[in-house]
C-alpha cells in the first residue's frame, strides 16, 4: 500500500510532503517520545505521533519512514511543514487518537506478519 492509498482509504488530510505520497508503507509505529522512536521505528512505517515539532521530520528521515501521521487533532509547527516539504516526507493529519487509527491500519493488513495477513479464513 502506498501513502496516497492510506490517505484515500482512511480520509487523512495531507498537510506537507506531497512529493512523497507514492512511498510504500510496510508497517506502522506509535510513539511520542522521539528518543525512543529514533531507536525502534521500522523502515517504511507510517508513524503516528502527537508531536508536531520539526524534529519529527529528522526522525522520519533517519528511520526511512514512509510517512508521519499527526494524531489527536494536533498540528505541525510551520517549520515542520517546511522541512517535510524539503525532505518529501508526507505529513498526514488524523483528528482522533493514534489507537483508533492504528487499529484501522492493522486491520487493513499493514504491519501484519506475512503468514497472518495471507491466511484467509
Amino acid at each position: 500500500m502506498m501513502v496516497k492509498d492510506l490517505v484515500d482509504k482512511f480520509g487523512l488530510a495531507v498537510t506537507a510532503g506531497e512529493s512523497g505520497l507514492d512511498r510504500e508503507v510496510s508497517s506502522g509505529y506509535c510513539g511520542d517520545l522521539l528518543s525512543e522512536v529514533m531507536g525502534n521505528a521500522p523502515a517504511g512505517c507510517a508513524w503516528m505521533t502527537v508531536q508536531g515539532h520539526q524534529n519529527i521530520v529528522a526522525v522520519a528521515v533517519l528511520r526511512e519512514m514512509a510517512a508521519i501521521i499527526i494524531t489527536g487533532g494536533q498540528t505541525p509547527d510551520d517549520e515542520t511543514i517546511k522541512k517535510a516539504d524539503q525532505e518529501g516526507i508526507p505529513i498526514l493529519l488524523w483528528s482522533n487518537s493514534s489507537f483508533t487509527l492504528a487499529g484501522r491500519l492493522f486491520s487493513a493488513g499493514i504491519g501484519k506478519p506475512a503468514t497472518e495477513s495471507s491466511s484467509k479464513r
Binding site: L33, L34, S35, V37, M38, Q51, H53, Q54, N55, A58, V59, E79
Partner: peptide
C-alpha cells in the same frame, strides 16, 4: 533524563 527532557522528548537538540 529520559522524561521531560529535551533529548528524551525530541531525540536531539533542535539546531534552531
Amino acid at each position: 533524563r529520559p522524561s521531560f527532557s529535551l533529548v528524551g522528548q525530541l531525540g536531539f537538540i533542535p539546531e534552531d
